[in-house]
Design a protein around this nucleic acid. Structure first.
Lengths: 191, 191
DNA sequence: GTCTATAAAAAGATAGAC
DNA sequence: GTCTATCTTTTTATAGAC
């Protein structure tokens, strides 16, 4: 059985239970593998499992969510596609974000560097589109961070209020919001 | 020793470690109380401890962060004060939010109802100010939810990027953002 | 109200057979 | 590559003395 079969399964487990809450019993049950088999694949234990999940998330971010962000299309088109894929990734607001989960548990420090790298890659890809669209680098980076703030905050609030509408509302407005006052997106300029 | 002495201590522990990561050993060390003493004060174990912390947070929200939100002052003044106190509460972005932490651990379901009630109380207090300022209830509620999204998202990103600037930037803009297109706050109307 | 001591369960991890 | 069995440590929880 190839790793990629149960890494998504691990992703789900760690996302739903956090690092401390994802016990080997739960992992064993969810993957169908016995304890010893888990240690055969991941000699480093849970830390190595999370590492594999983060590898997987990095590939997903680069090859799915951010795919095409360096292409020739209009900024608004690229950002719209990124938002659509983000919505899919988080099941329209019904799924938490593993990065946030890892940041808020006791293993925070262990994974801080890798989580930070993923967030920065995401932010920088958005900022690059905005710079290419004519924004100055400083504003572009702040606006890209604002986008991640909206996404992460909306996920937290949707979990907390037990309804996906905050996430959906945010994601729906996000592309236009990112492109405000930008060259190619001034379809509705002031009269 | 009165409960209020170590409840803030428990708040810190659960915020930093999550429900699963806050073991009785850590709790014992942090409070200075032996295991048995902890069960004397909280026969229900960790669940009851978190319950006490949520009671404490509810009081803090009502009596500190939201204090004066139903007063006679201008909306912008009230929202500005709320943001100032929010910034204090989260140590200018260096401190995580327990509510988010609880929502992202394995004990999610146990505390969901109480966490939701706290978020709704916060949201409704903001919305009430905006309604009083002339916004329709629907818009007011959405905008209040957007405020909580910004706060929670900024906390997550500040943790993730290991810098408080996203939180500070968000909190600094939030009062004006909440009051946009509202009667009493139209100091800088269109020319 | 706090302590020492201890029990019972669950967690993380490994050895060795197949 | 997976299993059974086992081990160690940690965790939660309680009993009973002071």
């Amino acid at each position: 059985m190839p790793k990629d079969t149960y890494v998504p399964c691990l992703l789900d487990l760690f996302r739903q239970n956090g690092y401390d809450g994802a016990t080997l019993s739960k992992i064993s049950e969810a993957t169908g593998l016995g304890r010893a088999s888990l240690y055969h694949h991941f000699p480093g234990g849970k830390d190595e499992m999370v590492g594999a999940v983060l590898d997987y998330l990095q590939r997903r971010l680069e090859q799915h969510i951010l795919q095409g962000m360096d292409g020739e299309e209009e900024p608004l088109v690229k950002l719209q596609r990124m938002c659509d894929r983000t919505a899919l990734t988080y099941d329209n607001g019904n799924r938490a974000c593993l990065l946030a989960t890892l940041l808020l548990g006791s293993a925070r420090d262990v994974f801080q560097v890798r989580v930070q790298a993923l967030l920065e890659a995401w932010r920088d890809a958005i900022a690059a589109v905005l710079i290419e669209a004519g924004l100055d680098p400083q504003t572009a980076q702040e606006r890209a961070e604002d986008a991640l703030i909206s996404i992460q905050g909306a996920l937290v609030l949707s979990q907390g209020l037990k309804k996906p509408s905050p996430f959906q509302r945010v994601l729906q407005k996000l592309p236009q919001e990112l492109c405000r006052n930008v060259r190619q997106c001034e379809q509705q300029a002031l009269p």
